Each structure stands twice: as C-alpha cells, then as structure tokens.
Lab assay of single mutants.
Amino acid sequence: MDPFVVLVLCLSCLLLLSIWRQSSGRGKLPPGPTPLPVIGNILQIDIKDVSKSLTNLSKIYGPVFTLYFGLERMVVLHGYEVVKEALIDLGEEFSGRGHFPLAERANRGFGIVFSNGKRWKEIRRFSLMTLRNFGMGKRSIEDRVQEEARCLVEELRKTKASPCDPTFILGCAPCNVICSIIFQKRFDYKDQQFLNLMEKLNENIRIVSTPWIQICNNFPTIIDYFPGTHNKLLKNLAFMESDILEKVKEHQESMDINNPRDFIDCFLIKMEKEKQNQQSEFTIENLVITAADLLGAGTETTSTTLRYALLLLLKHPEVTAKVQEEIERVIGRNRSPCMQDRGHMPYTDAVVHEVQRYIDLIPTSLPHAVTCDVKFRNYLIPKGTTILTSLTSVLHDNKEFPNPEMFDPRHFLDEGGNFKKSNYFMPFSAGKRICVGEGLARMELFLFLTFILQNFNLKSLIDPKDLDTTPVVNGFASVPPFYQLCFIPV
C-alpha cells in the first residue's frame, strides 16, 4: 500500500478516535471549553503556568470542569470545598494515580508514587510505618536530621561569610537525610558517588519541569519514536535504579534480621516474612523503585522550600529577627534545636507554614484518578478519569488567608500570638494520596531553619526591599529566582 495512503488512514483513525473520546459521556461530565481534535484544549493552557490557566477557566466554568490534554480527559478541581469533598470525603474513590506514560515506562507500575490498587496500598502502608518507626538502627529519624543539620551548619561556616548561592548546600542536606534513612549512610558533600546522585536528581527535576515532558505524557507515541530530553530522564532513572540495586545486594549479604539498620533492611525482612506468599507485593523490584521514589520526592521539594525560605527571610528581616528572638528565648545557644521545641515556638512554626503556603511549591499536585465511576456534584466521572487538583486555589484562598499574595506569618497566628491551624494548609496535597514523607519534610524544615538561624545572621547583597521573591514557574514547580547571601556567624 502507498505510504501516503497509510499515513492518511492513520491520521484519520487518530482523528476519529479523538472525536469519539471527547464526545463520549460529555453530557455527564462537568462543563469545559470545547476541545480541538487530537490536541484537545492545549492551546487554551499556558504550559509554563498551568495553575494560572486553571484559575482563569474556573471563573468561566465553575469549581469543577473538564479539560482535554491531547486525548487525555481530565476533570479539574478548583477551590477548597471541591478539593476537600473529593480528596477527603470521597478519598477512596479519588485515590488513584493519574496516567503518566513516562513514569509507567520507567517504574513499570512498581513503587509508591505511580503505583495503584493493592500494590500501592500495601507499599504505602509499609513505608509510612517504617518512616514513623523511630527505632531503626537504634537511631531515631530526628537524630538523623539533627546530625545532618549540624553538618549543614559546618558547611555554611566554610563560606566564611562571603557571598554564596545556597542551592547546592541546601540540596545536599535533605538528600543526605533520605540516604541515611534508606542506606544507613550519609555522605560527605564532596563524595563523588553522592555528587553523581545529586546531579541525576537535579537533572531529572529540570527535565520533568519542561513543556516537552508534558507533551510526551499527552502524546506517548513520542516516547519511542522521537529524540528528546525524555530519553535522558529514562537513562538517569535507570542509572539510579541500578545503583540502588547494588546497595540492596550489599544489604542482603550483611543484614541482621533482628537489628534492621535502615529502610532497605526493613523491606528485606518483610520480604523474608512473605516469601511463601506468591501474591506478595514485597519484591526486589518494588524495593528498588520505592527507594528511588523516596529519593526523588524527598530531596528537591525540601531543598527548594529551604532555598525559598531563606530568600523570604532576607526580604523580611523583621520576621527573621522575631524567629531568632524566639530561638534565643526557648533554645538558647548551648544546645541543639529539637522537635519538642516546636510546641513552644508558635512564631517560628507560623513562619515555616507561611513559607510553604506562600511559595505554593507544587501548584497542581500530582494528578489523581478516580478508581470507579463516581457521581460528584451531579456529574458522572468515569472510572480512570484523571483528576487535576489546584492546590493554589486552596493555599491562596483570600477568605482563609487575607492578602494571600503577601508573605505574612500572621496567617497562622491567632490574636494572642498562638499558632493557628488551618484546614486550607495543603502543600502536601490531601486525602489518601497525601505525601508519604510529610512528617519528615516538616521535621527537616523546622530543624534546618532553626539550626541555621541559631548559628548565623543572614545578610543580603542588596537592599532587602529590592529582592525579587516572585516565583519562577516552570510548569511543574514554583522555584525561587537566583540569589546570593552571606551567612554571618553569630
């Protein structure tokens, strides 16, 4: 058959498939802009700032609406009420993970971030239990974070109060905490193996944040037939998995079943207990991918939040002064901060919360999916439909947070200066898919920041009023603009 005829037939089939998918069930789905064949609503979305586009569309179609990214149908949730109703009140029905062709290629359905069903539930339950087990290797997770915080302070001392970009050092600290939990080992910041790991993690975040990856996920045929950065992403992930597998083999040879040292040991012990169960989800494949998931999810998000926190503290020296006064009063100079201190430091706690609220790190979270046909607000959402959640619409709700575009710790303080919780605080998402490392991340943010401010004054290279804190939105995360500062020993 003539190649031209084959091409026309293929394009015609794709067009018909697109029209059929977009028209099927439209009477039951939430409203939304009319999609174009094949490309859907992509032309109506700013790929570099999806969150802003969703906010604009919500003003037209309401808090629940339908979009098509290519052939992929998505239902968008915008605003606290619908997000709570879906992710919390109907948590089980909305607990699936959205379709990610690239991740599915890399992870093969294993791990904790992109798995679904029984596998996801069992691996998540085990990971939560293990991360909360403060007795691994007779050292609590808090001990590990405190140790890394001391190392971080010593690295900052080496800058000798000269101007520096904190990106690298602030990236090393949370990565080392995860390494300590998974591998029972922290690395020197100049260790070549550690630097290679950091390089792969950072490069992957840069790649994932590009519009090209959005295109690959919406048109998965590209993955096999086109060159691009997605190939580098898959190569980096394969490198990390190979490295983790080597460490798993080392653990198998040296493990003491009665004295687990780290996450890998705990997983291997669980595998041993379930070795007679042919349906067990505790396999080497799941261990390797879960460890890679924890490394990827637990490094860049925390380091970016820390980097943004220091920029905001530079911009608002009056806030920094209040935090340091609270540190001096509650902790002093002669001991290290600990998590028990947080309950006695409402202002510092409010500042950490406000940093996370203000920066809105992951504006749309990772997409969910419905696990069955769901009736939601008089609409029928078919099983498997991807759910896109606007966390921006919750964290920047102007009824809950007056002047949401302003950095103001009073958003989390009552009139008496006591810490005030808010149900709208969802930087880790909400419901059954809430970030498994939430507790660890909150511990790291509090301890790293208090250790830094206990030991250093922060000095800006320019007038604080002239510092730009506008986030650089890159399609996946909101990151701070480049800046330098000086760490002046107190």
Rank of each mutant, 00 (worst) to 15 (best):
D2R: 12
V6I: 13
V6D: 00
L7S: 10
L9C: 11
L9S: 12
C10H: 01
L11I: 12
C13N: 06
C13H: 00
S18M: 15
I19W: 11
R21G: 11
R26G: 13
R26S: 13
K28S: 10
L29S: 07
L29K: 05
P31L: 06
P31S: 04
P31R: 08
T34Y: 11
I39S: 03
G40Y: 00
N41I: 00
N41L: 00
I42P: 03
L43Q: 07
L43G: 09
I45G: 03
K48N: 09
K48D: 08
D49G: 08
D49V: 02
S51G: 14
K52G: 13
L54V: 10
T55M: 12
T55D: 15
Y61G: 01
G62I: 00
G62R: 00
F65G: 01
F65A: 02
L67W: 03
L67G: 01
Y68H: 14
F69P: 05
F69D: 03
V76T: 04
L77F: 11
Y80I: 08
V82R: 03
V83T: 06
K84H: 12
L87N: 03
L87A: 03
L87K: 02
I88M: 10
D89W: 05
D89V: 09
D89F: 07
L90S: 09
G91F: 09
G91H: 09
F94M: 06
S95M: 08
S95A: 13
R97F: 03
E104D: 11
E104T: 15
A106P: 06
A106G: 09
N107D: 05
R108Q: 09
G111Q: 02
G111M: 02
G111C: 03
V113F: 06
V113T: 14
F114E: 04
F114W: 07
F114T: 11
N116V: 06
K118D: 10
K118M: 10
R119T: 13
R119P: 09
R119K: 12
W120A: 05
R125G: 11
R125N: 13
F126E: 04
F126L: 07
S127D: 01
M129F: 13
L131C: 05
L131G: 03
F134T: 14
F134L: 13
G137P: 12
S140L: 06
I141C: 08
I141P: 08
I141Y: 15
I141G: 05
E142H: 07
D143N: 09
D143I: 08
D143L: 08
R144Y: 08
Q146V: 14
Q146N: 10
E147D: 11
R150H: 12
C151I: 12
V153D: 00
E154V: 09
E155A: 12
E155L: 08
R157Y: 13
K158E: 15
T159L: 14
K160F: 09
S162W: 12
P163K: 09
P163L: 08
C164I: 12
D165I: 03
P166E: 01
T167A: 14
F168Y: 14
I169N: 05
L170K: 00
C175I: 07
N176E: 02
N176Y: 00
V177C: 07
I178N: 06
I178C: 02
C179Q: 07
S180Q: 12
S180G: 10
I182M: 12
Q184W: 07
F187E: 04
D188R: 10
Y189I: 07
Q192V: 12
Q193F: 11
L195V: 15
M198E: 05
M198S: 07
E199G: 12
L201R: 04
N202S: 15
E203M: 07
E203G: 07
R206V: 08
P211N: 07
W212F: 06
I213Y: 10
C216H: 05
C216I: 14
F219K: 05
P220H: 06
Y225H: 13
F226T: 08
F226H: 03
H230S: 06
H230A: 09
H230W: 11
H230I: 07
L233E: 02
F239Y: 12
M240I: 06
E241G: 10
E241V: 11
S242H: 14
I244H: 01
I244S: 02
L245H: 09
E246M: 09
K247G: 07
K249Q: 13
K249A: 11
K249F: 09
E250Y: 08
E250R: 11
H251E: 04
H251G: 01
M255P: 04
M255Q: 06
N258M: 11
N258K: 15
N258A: 11
R261L: 04
R261F: 01
F263G: 01
L268S: 03
I269S: 09
K270F: 08
K270E: 14
M271P: 01
E274R: 06
K275A: 11
Q276H: 15
Q276Y: 14
N277A: 12
N277V: 11
Q278Y: 11
Q279C: 13
T283Q: 10
E285I: 07
E285R: 14
N286M: 06
N286S: 10
N286F: 00
N286D: 04
L287S: 01
T290A: 12
T290R: 01
L294M: 13
G296H: 14
A297G: 10
G298E: 02
G298A: 14
T299A: 12
T299R: 03
T301A: 14
T302Y: 01
T304D: 10
T305E: 02
T305N: 03
L306E: 00
L310P: 00
L311P: 01
L312C: 07
L312H: 05
L313I: 05
P317C: 06
E318L: 10
E318H: 10
K322G: 10
V323A: 08
Q324K: 12
E325W: 10
R329M: 13
R333E: 10
P337K: 00
P337W: 01
Q340S: 13
R342Y: 11
R342W: 09
M345H: 01
Y347A: 00
T348Q: 00
D349M: 10
A350Q: 01
H353Y: 06
H353G: 02
Y358G: 00
D360W: 01
I362Y: 13
I362E: 05
T364M: 14
T364C: 14
L366F: 11
L366M: 13
L366K: 04
P367Q: 02
P367V: 05
H368M: 03
H368Y: 04
T371F: 05
D373F: 00
F376W: 08
F376K: 00
R377L: 06
N378H: 12
Y379Q: 02
P382N: 03
K383Y: 04
T386N: 08
L388K: 03
L388F: 06
T389L: 14
S390N: 07
S390F: 02
T392F: 04
T392D: 04
V394Q: 03
H396F: 09
H396N: 15
N398I: 12
E400C: 05
P402V: 13
P404S: 10
P404E: 06
P404N: 07
M406S: 11
F407M: 03
F407I: 00
F412I: 00
E415T: 10
K421S: 15
N423G: 11
M426G: 01
M426L: 14
M426N: 03
A430Y: 04
A430L: 10
K432G: 10
K432N: 15
G437Q: 03
E438C: 02
E438H: 08
A441R: 00
E444H: 04
L445T: 07
L445C: 03
F446I: 01
L447T: 15
F448S: 03
T450S: 13
F451R: 14
F451K: 15
L453V: 08
Q454D: 02
N455S: 11
F456T: 03
L458H: 03
K459R: 13
L461R: 11
L461Y: 12
I462A: 12
D466S: 11
L467C: 07
L467D: 05
P471K: 15
P471C: 10
N474S: 12
G475S: 15
G475I: 10
A477G: 12
A477L: 09
A477M: 09
S478D: 06
V479G: 11
P480R: 05
P480I: 05
P481E: 07
Y483I: 06
L485Y: 05
L485M: 14
V490N: 15
